[in-house]
Amino acid sequence: MDAIKRYVRSPAAVLGLVLLLGIIAMAISAGHVYPRDPLALAGRPLIWPFSNPRFLLGTDNSGRDIAAQIFYGARISLLIGGAATLIAIAIGILVGALAGFYGGWVDTVLMRITEAFQTLPNFVLLLVLVAVFGSTLTTVTIAVGVVSWPAPARLTRAEFLSLRNREFVQAGRTLGMKDAQLILGEILPNALPPVIVYASVVMAVAILLESALAFLRLSDPNVASWGNLIGLGRDVLRVQWYVSAIPGIAILVTVLAVSLVGQGLNDALNPRLRGR
C-alpha cells in the first residue's frame, strides 16, 4: 500500500512507532517481568536508582519498586488513553456527522451544545465529573473521553459540510440511497483520515489529563499509574526528585511517540499536504 510506504519513509514517524511499540511491549510483559503486585512493599523506601540491582529504578517513599510501577503504569496509561480516545472520537463523529449532514436546526442545536462544552476548561469539567461520580478507573476513563469530544466533532462536521454537496453524494441520492447509507457508506470513509490523525492528539491529551488528575490524587488510587507515582513523589520532590521524574519521562516519551505516529499518519494519509 502507498500509505504504508510513505509512512516508513519518514524517520520521525518510524521512531514514534518504535517507541510506541516499546511502550506496548512494556504493558504486555509487565506481568512476566514483575510477577508481584507493583503496589506491594518491596524493600526499603527511597532507594536511589541504579544503587541496588534488585530495584533498577529505585523505590518510592513507601518502598515500592518504581520500575514495576512504570511497567504496570504503561497498561493504565495506554488503557485510559485508548479507551478515552475511542469514546471521544465516537461521540465526536456522531455529533459532527449529524450536524454536518443535516445542517439547519440539527446543526444549530448540536453546535451550541458543542460550544457549551468547549467554553468550559476541560480539566475543570473533568474535576467536576470525577468529584461527582468518584474516581475508579472506569469513571476516570469515561470522564476523560466525555471532555475530549468537541474538537473531533467540529473536525468531522467541517469534513461533512464540504463533502455532502459533492457530486458523488448527489449521485448516491439519485441512486435512491437512504441517509444512513449516504452518511456511513459514502461520506464517512472520505471524512475519516483527518479524524484518525486527530485521534493521536486526543490520545496524547487523554494520557496527560489522567496524569494531571493522578497528580492531584484524584485518580484511581488502587492501580499503579504514572500519575499516581508523580503524585506520591510530590512529597519528596526536593531531595528524591527521581520519584516524580522517572514517571514524568515515561509520560513524555509516550506522548511524544503518539504525536509522532499521528504526524506520520497525517503525512501518509494526506500526501498532498506535505512540504507545506
Binding site: E167, G176, P189
Partner: peptide
C-alpha cells in the same frame, strides 16, 4: 417513495472526477 421510484430516472454528472466515490 422517491427512493423506490428513483430507478426510473437516472442522472449522469458533469465532473467524472467528483461524481465517483474515490474509496
Amino acid at each position: 417513495e422517491l427512493r423506490r421510484e428513483t430507478r426510473h430516472i437516472q442522472m449522469v454528472f458533469q465532473d467524472p472526477f467528483a461524481s465517483l466515490n474515490p474509496r
